[in-house]
Every structure is written in structure tokens, then in C-alpha cells.
């Protein structure tokens, strides 16, 4: 995509994201007048009592804003991680879920929930086991000869199964009164339980991670040429890939610590972005991040407003993702050959 078209697309996406976020702040169980945020909850302007204005303000700033920020940053993080993984492993079929990151992080976070009440412990363990599971997938793929693309998927499947099994052990051990339901509901995915303090603690890391990956997007173009070619172009392959794996795994694990297992975003969004802007990672990554943010924000809005009770977001992304991805696959197949 030419520089001009790219800037235009970027601008349009930023506007769409801003509008979606603005709308998201106003919709929900308590429906808030559309101009409330624009007029800073001025009771006179909105023609409501000062008390109601105060309630609206609290709902928006304490509940909805953290949730909106969490949803959009998690969407951006998952989408950009998927795009980065796909490029660095030269494999359009991998994603945080397929490489086992989500399963590993889920195991780590549930272990954390079991042994401690401190959210920091859950987050650290989520990240730790996220790294372990990618490592397992990549090492298994190296260990067996054969088609690199397929072996990495196999490695991911094995690593995913391993941590899913370990997660079952945690569920089995967990106390059925409190811990088990908490783990199960959290794993289905959702941002309803995200406290503003947890969001404030975790989201800066996610945001910095996203910025760092975008800054390194030039490396992804080189790495996607293959190890030997990248080395012949003067890039230290092992070091740059290791740095990228750590950052991508960090941010995708943190989404698990915040919102549970949210599948399909990391696989689907990069493909959609690639259809829009092509394969160049310097454009693909920012566009993936923005589309991922908009997508997860919209899905989260549906989850919390469509029905009387809230639907877990992981279920929604799968239900919406699968048919959409089949459509995308049928249109992009030729681009992979």
C-alpha cells in the first residue's frame, strides 16, 4: 500500500476506534445520554439532576472507561501478537492460541489464583508459562524434521494440550465452592471482573509492548525471509527473534491475566489486515492493532449489552470468528502459495 493510502487507512481506523470507544462509554445497563462525556457530565447541559450526573460520571470513569481501555488494548495486543508470530515464524497459520501461549498463560494464571490472592502473582505466572509454552512449541518443531510450517503447528498443538491438561489438574485440585467457579468463568473470557486498579497496573505494560513491537516491525520483514537470508542481510536472527518472542508473549499472556482466554482474534485479524494493506509488517502491525482494538471493543459491547446477562467474550469471539475466518480463508488461500 502506498504511503498516502496507508496514512488515510490509519486515520480512518483511528477515527473509527475513537467513535466506537466513545459510544462504548455510553451504552450498557445504565444508558447514558450521548453527549454526557462531551459536556463533562454538566447537569445543566444534560437537563438532569446533579445526583444523576454524578452517578453517570462514576459509571463512566470507574467502570466503563477501564473496561473499554482493557478491551481495546487486549484486542490490539492479541492481533499484533498474532501478526508478529506469523511473520517471525514464517507461518500464516500460527497465533497466540495455536502456539499454546493462551493455554500456558491460562495454566500459569490459574495456578496463581490457586496459590495467592495477589493479582501480580497470577500475571507473573501467566507470562512465565506463556513463554514456557511457546518455547515448548518451537523446540518440538525443531526436534522433528519435516515441513517447518506443519511441525510448528504440531508443536503448538502438543504444547497447548499439555497445558490444557495441567490446567485440568488445577481445576481438579481447586476448591469447588469458590476457586473452581472463579477459574472456569474467568477462563471463558471476559472483562466484567477487571478492576480499575488491575487495569491501571497491567495496561501500561501492554501499551508499551505494542509500541515496542511496532518499533521492531522492520525486523519482522527481515525475519520472515528465513534465518539464513536474514543473517546474510546483517541481522542477528537469534537475538532479534528472542526479543520479539518475549515481548509478544508478554503482551498476549497479559491479556489472559486480564480477560481470560480470548481465541481467534490473533489469527483472524492479521489476515484481514493483510488483505487491506499487504504483507509489509511496518504497515501490517499498526493496522492489525487498530482493527483488533475495534473488533474486540465491539464484541465486548455485544457481550455486555445484547442479552440480560453478560456472555463470556471468549465464547463470542469463537462464535463470530469461526464463520468469518472460513470466509477469509476462502478468499486468501491463493496468497499463501
Amino acid at each position: 500500500m502506498t504511503a498516502k493510502k496507508y496514512r488515510l487507512t490509519l486515520t480512518l481506523l483511528v477515527i473509527t476506534l475513537a467513535v466506537t470507544a466513545y459510544i462504548s462509554l455510553h451504552i450498557g445497563t445504565i444508558s447514558i445520554p450521548w453527549f454526557a462525556v462531551l459536556v463533562s457530565f454538566d447537569a445543566g447541559e444534560l437537563d438532569i439532576s446533579a445526583e444523576t450526573a454524578e452517578t453517570y460520571k462514576t459509571v463512566v470513569s470507574q467502570i466503563r472507561l477501564p473496561r473499554v481501555l482493557t478491551a481495546l488494548l487486549c484486542g490490539a495486543a492479541l492481533a499484533i501478537s498474532g501478526a508478529a508470530y506469523q511473520s517471525m515464524f514464517m507461518n500464516p497459520l500460527v497465533s497466540p492460541a495455536l502456539l499454546g501461549v493462551l493455554a500456558g498463560a491460562a495454566f500459569g494464571a490459574s495456578l496463581g489464583m490457586l496459590i495467592s490472592n495477589n493479582i501480580l502473582v497470577a500475571q507473573l505466572l501467566a507470562f512465565g508459562f506463556g513463554v514456557v509454552s511457546v518455547g515448548t512449541a518451537v523446540l518440538l518443531a525443531r526436534f522433528f524434521p519435516g515441513n517447518r510450517l506443519i511441525m510448528l503447528i504440531m508443536g503448538g498443538v502438543i504444547s497447548s494440550s499439555l497445558f490444557t491438561a495441567l490446567l485440568s489438574v488445577i481445576k481438579f485440585i481447586a476448591d469447588t465452592q469458590n476457586e473452581l467457579p472463579a477459574i472456569v468463568y474467568w477462563l471463558m473470557g471476559g472483562f466484567s471482573a477487571v478492576s480499575s486498579s488491575a487495569a491501571a497496573m497491567v495496561l501500561p505494560f501492554v501499551a508499551v509492548g505494542i509500541v515496542l513491537i511496532i518499533a521492531m516491525s522492520g525486523y519482522l520483514n527481515v525475519l520472515s525471509m528465513g534465518d539464513e537470508e536474514a543473517a546474510s542481510l546483517g541481522v542477528n536472527v537469534k537475538r532479534s527473534r528472542m526479543v520479539l518472542i518475549i515481548i509478544t508473549t508478554l503482551i498476549s499472556s497479559l491479556t489472559v491475566a486480564l480477560g481470560g482466554m480470548i481465541g481467534w482474534v490473533g489469527l483472524m485479524i492479521p489476515h484481514i489486515a493483510r488483505m487491506i494493506c499487504g504483507a509489509d509488517n511496518r504497515q501490517l502491525l499498526p493496522i492489525s492493532a487498530l482493527i483488533g482494538a475495534i473488533y474486540l471493543l465491539i464484541v465486548d459491547n455485544i457481550c455486555r449489552t445484547a442479552f440480560a446477562g453478560e456472555i463470556p467474550i471468549g465464547i463470542m469471539t469463537s462464535l463470530m470468528g469461526i464463520p468469518f475466518f472460513i470466509l477469509v480463508l476462502s478468499r486468501t488461500e491463493s496468497r499463501w502459495n
Partner: peptide, 21 residues
Amino acid sequence: PQRHTAVFSYRVLDIVVLGRI
């Protein structure tokens, strides 16, 4: 290298410019 089966469809110019890395 031997011409490779590219996984991603980069624009030709974007592949060539990698020589400036």
C-alpha cells in the same frame, strides 16, 4: 538463495529494499 516459496505476498520493491538493512 534459491528462489523460495514466499509465505507472504510482499511487494517486489519491499523485498529488494531489504538489501539496505
